[in-house]
C-alpha cells in the first residue's frame, strides 16, 4: 500500500507538472489543480492510522482513521480551491488584456516591454 500511495501521488504530481509546462494557460490551470490534488492525496495517506471514520460512537477494537490529516486535507482542499478560482479569473483577465492564452505570446509581450524599457533607460554607458 505504501508504494501504491506514493506512486499515485507521484503520477498525479507528474501529470500536473507536465501540464504546467504547456503553452496553453488553461492547461496550466488544470496542471495546478492536479498538483494540488496530489498534495491532498499525500496528506490523507500520511495519516497515522487507517480504519473506521472518526465519528462517535466508535466501534471498540477497530482502528480509527487519523482525524488530524482529514482536517488538514480539508483545509488544504479549500485553500487550493480558492487559489485555483483566483488563478482562473487571472487567466481570464490575461486573456482579455492580451487576447491570447498562449504563453509564448505572453513571453513575446514581455520581451517587447523590456526592449522599450532598455531603450528608455540606458542613457550612456559609464566607463
Amino acid at each position: 500500500m505504501t508504494l501504491l500511495f506514493a506512486v499515485a501521488v507521484a503520477i498525479l504530481f507528474g501529470s500536473g507538472a507536465y501540464l504546467l509546462l504547456k503553452h496553453d494557460l488553461v492547461r496550466v490551470v488544470i496542471g495546478m489543480v492536479l498538483i494540488s490534488n496530489a498534495a491532498n492525496l499525500f496528506i490523507i495517506s500520511a495519516g497515522l492510522s487507517r480504519g473506521q471514520a472518526p465519528i462517535y460512537p466508535l466501534a471498540d477494537g477497530e482502528p480509527v482513521s487519523d482525524p488530524l490529516v482529514q482536517a488538514m486535507t480539508l483545509t488544504a482542499i479549500v485553500i487550493s480551491f480558492g487559489v485555483a478560482a483566483l488563478l482562473l479569473a487571472l487567466v481570464y483577465r490575461v486573456y482579455t488584456s492580451h487576447l491570447s492564452l498562449d504563453l509564448d505570446e505572453l513571453a513575446e509581450a514581455d520581451e517587447r516591454d523590456e526592449a522599450v524599457r532598455d531603450l528608455a533607460t540606458l542613457t550612456g554607458r559609464q566607463r
Binding site: 505504501t2 508504494l3 500511495f5 506514493a6 506512486v7 501521488v9 507521484a10 503520477i11 498525479l12 504530481f13 507528474g14 501529470s15 500536473g16 507538472a17 507536465y18 509546462l21 504547456k22 496530489a38 499525500f42 495517506s45 500520511a46
Partner: peptide, 20 residues
C-alpha cells in the same frame, strides 16, 4: 516536458515513499 514531468514525479515519489 516529458522528462521534467518524470523528474517531478520522481521528486514526489521519493519524498512521499520515503516518508510513508
Amino acid at each position: 516536458d516529458a522528462a521534467l514531468a518524470v523528474i517531478a514525479g520522481v521528486i514526489a515519489l521519493v519524498v512521499s515513499w520515503s516518508a510513508l
